[in-house]
Amino acid sequence: MADSPFAGKVVVVTGAGSGIGAATAHRFGRDGATVIAVGRNEDKLRRTVAEAPAGSAIVARAADVADESSITALVEEVAREYGRLDVLVNNAGIATLGTVENTGTADWRQVMAVDVDGVFFASKAALPRLRAVGGCIVNVGSVSGLGGDWGLAAYNTAKGALANLTNAMALDHGREGVRVNAVHPCLTVTDLTASFLAEPVLAAFRERNPLGRPAEPAEVADVIAFLAGHDARFVNGVHIPVDGGLSASNGNPRLF
C-alpha cells in the first residue's frame, strides 16, 4: 500500500471495538496506515482485527480512556514502538438515558469520564507526538452535542463539552501544526444505539431525517478519514454534521 493516502502513518482510534470506531480503523487500514485499535474489551478488539480489510495493519491494544495513566501509557508505548503518531481519533463514548432529575450521579460521572475526560487525557498524551510530525486529531461528537434531546441530559452535556473542547484545541494548537476537527453523527447503527433502534423510535427517525434512515458506521468513518487527510490540510476547528441533512431543518415538522 505504498501509494495509499496514509501509507507510513500511525493512527490511534479509541473505542475501536465496534461501530464507528471499528469502521474507522478499517478505513485507515485500507488506506495504508498502521492502526492501533484501542478499547476496553479485548474480545471486541480482536473481532475488529479479524474483520479488517485484507493487507491492512491493525493492532489491538487494550486501554481505558477514562483512566489517565492507562491511555497515557498506551500513547507512549505506540510512540516508542512505531516512532511516530500521526492521527488520533477520539471515538470512545457511552450514553445513558435520563433527565437531570432522574440520572444517577454514578451514571453522570461515568459518561463525563469517558466522553469528556477520555478525550482530554488521550489528546494531552498525543499532542507532543502529533506536534512532531504535523499530525491531527479528529473528535467524534454527536448531533446531540449541537442541540438537545429529550431524556439524554448527561450525553448532551458531554458531547456539547467535546464540541467546545474541539474549538479550544484548534485555536491552541493550530500554529503548532496540529489540526483539530470534529464529526457529529446522527443516530448511527452501532452497539451503543441498538437499544434505540426498535420501532417506533426508528420509524420516527426515518420520518424526521431527510435521507430517511440512520447512518452507517462506514459513512462516518469516511468523513473522519477526509478530515485526517491531505485534502483537509487547511481545515481546522470545523464541525461536520454527518446526519443526512437533519441539522438543515429549523425544527418544524414536515408540513407538505
Results as ranks from 00 to 15, higher is better:
residue 130 L to E: 04
residue 116 V to C: 10
residue 118 G to W: 13
residue 222 D to W: 11
residue 215 A to M: 05
residue 150 W to Q: 12
residue 170 A to H: 10
residue 206 R to G: 04
residue 219 E to M: 03
residue 120 F to K: 06
residue 211 L to A: 00
residue 185 P to H: 05
residue 211 L to P: 02
residue 191 D to E: 12
residue 145 G to I: 09
residue 185 P to W: 03
residue 114 V to M: 09
residue 125 A to L: 01
residue 213 R to Y: 02
residue 182 A to M: 12
residue 114 V to N: 02
residue 181 N to R: 07
residue 98 G to R: 04
residue 217 P to D: 15
residue 216 E to D: 02
residue 150 W to M: 11
residue 105 T to M: 08
residue 206 R to V: 03
residue 114 V to L: 11
residue 172 D to P: 00
residue 97 L to R: 09
residue 212 G to K: 03
residue 187 L to W: 10
residue 204 A to V: 02
residue 196 F to A: 13
residue 202 L to P: 02
residue 104 G to L: 12
residue 165 L to V: 01
residue 202 L to S: 11
residue 170 A to I: 15
residue 208 R to Y: 12
residue 217 P to A: 11
residue 147 G to K: 14
residue 90 N to I: 04
residue 204 A to E: 09
residue 102 N to D: 12
residue 174 G to A: 10
residue 169 M to S: 07
residue 186 C to I: 14
residue 95 A to W: 15
residue 143 V to G: 11
residue 121 F to W: 00
residue 132 A to D: 01
residue 142 S to A: 11
residue 95 A to Q: 15
residue 172 D to Y: 11
residue 105 T to P: 01
residue 212 G to N: 00
residue 172 D to H: 11
residue 110 Q to Y: 04
residue 212 G to Y: 00
residue 132 A to F: 02
residue 143 V to C: 13
residue 211 L to I: 11
residue 117 D to G: 01
residue 210 P to Y: 07
residue 141 G to L: 07
residue 127 L to K: 09
residue 99 T to P: 03
residue 163 A to V: 02
residue 164 N to W: 09
residue 191 D to R: 09
residue 147 G to C: 14
residue 219 E to A: 05
residue 146 L to Y: 10
residue 160 G to M: 06
residue 98 G to T: 02
residue 109 R to A: 13
residue 130 L to F: 00
residue 189 V to Q: 01
residue 119 V to C: 13
residue 138 V to Q: 03
residue 184 H to G: 01
residue 210 P to A: 00
residue 110 Q to S: 13
residue 204 A to T: 01
residue 189 V to L: 11
residue 204 A to M: 07
residue 150 W to I: 14
residue 213 R to C: 03
residue 112 M to P: 04
residue 219 E to T: 01
residue 104 G to E: 15
residue 167 N to Q: 14
residue 114 V to D: 05
residue 179 R to T: 06
residue 171 L to P: 02
residue 212 G to A: 03
residue 119 V to Q: 14
residue 123 S to D: 06
residue 121 F to G: 02
residue 150 W to N: 12
residue 119 V to R: 14
residue 151 G to L: 15
residue 150 W to Y: 12
